[in-house]
Nucleic acid binder design. Structure first.
Lengths: 203, 203
DNA sequence: CTGGAATGCAAGTATCCACTTGCTTGCTGC
DNA sequence: GCAGCAAGCAAGTGGATACTTGCATTCCAG
């Protein structure tokens, strides 16, 4: 039964590269080092295989959580952003294709959406906790802020490879996004100076 | 020569829906109300047709500019964001597919990138102008800010249709993004109260 | 050592696709 | 009214694709 996993992994790679239509069963079998017939015997059909790929991807990489009791927003957010950037960067091709094909394959659409909602809730909850503890401005728009943060992370993860020169260097991205975000929320930062130093130093 | 435009338009629609591989010449011709042979006589090949589609789309909808001499950031940005949201929303399927297929079709990748750089420059230039006029905090990180704003707009335009409940209502989006963005830049706003009223009123 | 399950291999089927050919039709400018 | 050109139509070609079938091989458990 080792074939099953080999095929799944290969299918994920090939689908990421070529999309549903471009991911031919021949290619997947070849990439998996397995006979094409085995693929059909194991999964029944190409669609079923692809569905299995998405399910596996969903379960394998769940969104990162954020603490319910924030104490160091700068640090907590920076770590969260960095982790989310890495996670999304790994699945960007899968995401792009499943979003593009969502009209034709509803399961792909569901895959694209599901995580998005969860992440949004994680951020809004965190910002509300910040407000409650008096760390953020009570007038801050946490819903819009969450949309902005998630949008920023998604855009970086997906579009950086197309236009790398537009984005901050990868080592700085999380920190600079964090600073902008905290500023947006009216969170007082302790070490703003160090950031500017980092930034200027890099040029 | 009216066929040419009919085909181009149909190809754009079909490509948006089904991607390159899914956009069969048969489907396009049918959608254009034209014989399939006419398509090949006019454009030579499917690839050439698709290239023409992208070129047309690029030239037809250039990014919106922002004034060099800002006087009312709140208003200017809100209009810009709204316009950009509308523009990107119209081409979101095209964008998704060409980004997904960028590995296999370099011209598609170029289409996906080109506008992105321009928009980034427009925003950074505008923020620098704000700083120069003393309207924004001189310590603001205009590069990161531009990335954040563009990411937000792209994410809204593309992902809203998948998870509409996550995003602010369309009538409020531009205004709320504007407020968050200005706050991030340390721009003093005059009518913050009205926004909160709008927001609360909607719930 | 034997029966059954997993896998490989060769070949085939029906469908779809991009693209071509040869011929006809209809419109337009001269 | 006629030459020429754009477009339609019918048919076909070669290749790729998803999926099937029949049979041989390996390998492990009882």
């Amino acid at each position: 039964m080792i074939s099953r996993e080999r095929i799944l992994e290969a299918a994920s790679r090939v689908y990421s590269k070529h999309g549903f239509r471009g991911a031919t069963t021949r290619l997947i079998a070849q990439e998996a080092g397995v006979n094409e017939v085995t693929l059909f015997r194991t999964f029944g059909s190409k669609s079923a295989l692809m569905q299995a790929v998405l399910v596996q991807q969903q379960d394998g990489a769940p969104p990162t959580e954020l603490t319910d009791d924030p104490v160091d927003p700068e640090c907590e957010l920076k770590v969260w952003i960095q982790t989310s950037l890495d996670r999304l960067r790994d699945m960007r091709h899968l995401l792009l294709h499943s979003m593009g094909e969502s009209d034709e394959r509803p399961d792909a659409a569901q895959f694209a959406c599901q995580g998005r909602r969860t992440v949004h809730d994680i951020i809004t909850r965190y910002v509300r906790a910040l407000k409650k503890k008096g760390l953020a401005d009570v007038n801050a728009d946490e819903e819009a802020a969450a949309v902005i943060l998630v949008g920023t992370v998604m855009s970086d993860a997906i579009a950086r490879s197309f236009v790398p020169d537009v984005y901050p260097p990868m080592e700085q991205a999380a920190e600079r996004y964090t600073n902008c975000f905290l500023r947006m929320l009216g969170v007082k930062q302790t070490t703003r100076a160090s950031v500017r130093k980092t930034r200027i130093h890099a040029h």
